[in-house]
Simulated scan of single mutants.
Amino acid sequence: MRPSQPDGQSDTTGNGHTGVRDRRAALADAAVVAIAELLGVAPAAVSTRTPFAELGLSSTQLARLTAQLEDAMGVEVSLEAVYDHPDIEQLAEFLAMR
Rank of each mutant, 00 (worst) to 15 (best):
T13S: 13
L65P: 04
M97I: 00
A45E: 15
Q5G: 14
V32L: 04
R49P: 00
P86S: 05
V46S: 02
F94M: 06
G74I: 04
S4E: 11
N15D: 15
D87A: 07
D87I: 00
E80Q: 13
G8N: 09
G16R: 05
T12L: 13
A72H: 07
A53E: 15
P6E: 12
P3F: 10
D29F: 01
E76R: 12
T48N: 01
Q68A: 15
M73G: 06
R2A: 11
Q9H: 12
E93A: 11
A36M: 06
Y83H: 13
D29E: 15
A34P: 00
M1G: 14
A96K: 02
E54N: 13
A26S: 13
Q5M: 13
R21H: 08
R21Q: 10
T60R: 09
Q90A: 15
S47R: 13
S47H: 10
V41I: 08
G14T: 06
H85N: 15
R23K: 13
A26G: 13
L57S: 13
R24K: 13
E89P: 00
T18Y: 04
G8L: 10
R23C: 03
E76Q: 11
G74C: 03
F94D: 03
A34M: 03
Q68N: 05
S78G: 13
V33A: 15
D71T: 11
G19I: 02
D87K: 02
S10W: 10
Q68L: 12
A63T: 15
V41C: 08
G16T: 04
Q90K: 12
V46F: 03
M97A: 11
P6M: 03
S10V: 12
L57Q: 09
Q61G: 01
T50D: 02
A72K: 07
S4L: 14
R23D: 07
G56S: 10
N15W: 06
L27K: 05
P6V: 11
A42H: 14
T50L: 08
F94S: 06
F94V: 00
G14V: 03
A34D: 07
V41W: 07
R21L: 10
P6Y: 04
R2E: 12
A28G: 11
A36S: 09
